[in-house]
Design a protein around this nucleic acid. Structure first.
Lengths: 192, 192
DNA sequence: AAAGAGACTGACTGATCAGTCAATTATAGA
DNA sequence: TCTATAATTGACTGATCAGTCAGTCTCTTT
């Protein structure tokens, strides 16, 4: 039965995501995940050969969802700056609306679990970022720095804003933080 | 004997730092740390009541060292921009020269180990950052955004540059990355 | 209704974990 | 030298870990 298969697999992944962000990867046992997900420990290993396999699957899945969230309504924007701004707010709002996923990615990326291979594999989903940056450089919209530097600073800055919003409980100035953050990073990158 | 006491404690901390960045917190056992540090497991628990205690001690220790590294030769600089630039390069060079410490802090901060209390406690060591930012705002050198936002974006951007340098093995353009990164963040923050 | 296929189960295993403690060794003062 | 104090040791413990597997249950097909 296809439906049940998907259900259990999804239940395991969702439960794992929650517990991982609460207790860390090695701090969460496969037994805990299985129990909370409502499946037997044997079932866990039907879907994921090892615990590490689950962690990696989760990472690819979450990064994929993030990737499509970021691209949303980008093309409909006309100017380069409007598209970058949209990218900025898309990412930050994704982080706010998907706190567990956001924290999980952060945890995974700074853990020894991530290999150079995984990092590069995920990067392939973000070619559109490179394309965007190269376009901006070519049209003279942004400064001609190394695209890796530009992307890394943009990405980490946006993560900084999400963390700021998540740690402060004032949702009042949420939009102000997003807007001010964009002003900072845009001014830094743009050719003016 | 005071000297040996310090030696063993230091040996444990240094070994733990190395193993934690290699295998993660929960992926490293107290037995492994003890063995590699050349002490008995019992000795480990003489110096640190629990494993978590060691992790927290390490974090405070490392953050303290980072703090004093960052402030180095700041006061001797005359202009505000020169001081901020110095802060920028101090932090990045610290990350490059102390890769294990740098990775450990990143790992700890995105792990569930860090509590709100710990985070705030460490923040107290960085009051000089707040003072610097407030001074910059008052004298009109930098834009009047929330100091938390300014500091967070500055800090995460510098971490982005360190990661970029550590992951690429080209030490050739190291200084170029540091300089370009500074241009981006300074232009973003400054009032011009 | 019978039977074959595959999803699902949970008791089980050997390994490993954080932490203990009684015994041993090293140090310092008299 | 002798003795008291403190540092160090590592075998040990009960708990917990990732992963296994022989068997049960639930569908689908005929």
């Amino acid at each position: 039965m296809k439906k049940q298969v998907k259900d259990k697999r999804t239940a395991i992944m969702e439960t794992a995501l929650k517990l991982f962000t609460e207790r860390g990867f090695q701090g969460t046992s496969t037994a805990q995940i299985s129990k909370e997900a409502g499946v037997a420990t044997g079932t866990f290993f039907n879907y994921f050969p090892t615990k590490e396999d689950l962690i990696n699957s989760l990472y690819f899945e979450v990064k994929g969802r993030l990737s499509s969230s970021m691209e949303k309504e980008i093309e409909s924007k006309s100017t380069f700056q409007e598209r970058v701004r949209r990218l900025w707010s898309n990412f930050i709002n994704w982080g706010i609306d998907n706190q567990e996923e956001f924290l999980f990615v952060g945890q995974f990326c700074s853990s020894p679990y991530i290999t150079k291979y995984t990092r590069e594999e995920v990067m392939k989903e973000y070619i559109f970022l490179h394309n965007l940056v190269n376009e901006g450089i070519k049209t003279g919209e942004i400064k001609d720095f190394s695209p890796e530097l530009t992307i890394a600073m943009f990405y980490q800055s946006s993560r900084a804003v999400v963390n700021l919003i998540l740690n402060s409980n004032l949702s009042k100035d949420k939009n102000e933080l997003i807007e001010n953050g964009f002003q900072i990073i845009w001014r830094g990158l743009s050719e003016n």
